[in-house]
Amino acid sequence: MSARDRLVSPLIRDNPVTRQILGICSALAVTTSMTTALTMSAALVFVLCTAAALISAIRRHIPRAIRLILQITIIATLVILVDELLRAYAFALSERLSIFVGLIVTNCLVLGRAEAFAMHHPAGAAVLDGLGNALGYGLVLMVVAAIRELLGTGALFGRTVLPLAEEGGWFAPLRLMQLAPAAFFVLGLLVWAIRSARPEQVERPEHRLAPEAEP
């Protein structure tokens, strides 16, 4: 696999969220607005790349029996760093992200890439793989957030795009889009769209309707 493939393939084809079902946990909660989604994506890019580089650099010295504990410790340290930085320089934003920055520790995407890739590859490749996967995750986050914020409040990044009816415009916001169920619907439809475009990703049904019998 070339370096370019490693970076590009997790963006859509092997996207961590829609294909590998990794890291959905924290993905959905921060998608009520583009600002929170962007912050979360940036935090994940930093944690995933740095963790991949560190773990890959010491991979020959890690005893197999304690590798998971070691990986979690490294990841948790990086997450604490991000959390404290956000608290210091963007306190309002960190209040809105609530506990979800801390939950990057148990984001299966970070541990999954560390265990599956960084443990067996040199640092350069591991960072590229981490960057690709983090960007793929970020891409899904941004798409879901864009749909939910635009339809839910008529704004993008907090700036009004569709003039609201109550302020003299024409757009009546869908309040449902800001609630939890909408995140599931939007992501479900997104998965459907990606799989319609790339039929090789479709899961085979276990049962099929029998062809109509002649009466």
Partner: peptide, 11 residues
């Protein structure tokens, strides 16, 4: 077809 599995689970 595309909704089979993961997509349907989300909905």
């Amino acid at each position: 077809e595309g909704l089979q599995g993961l997509g349907a689970a989300f909905i």
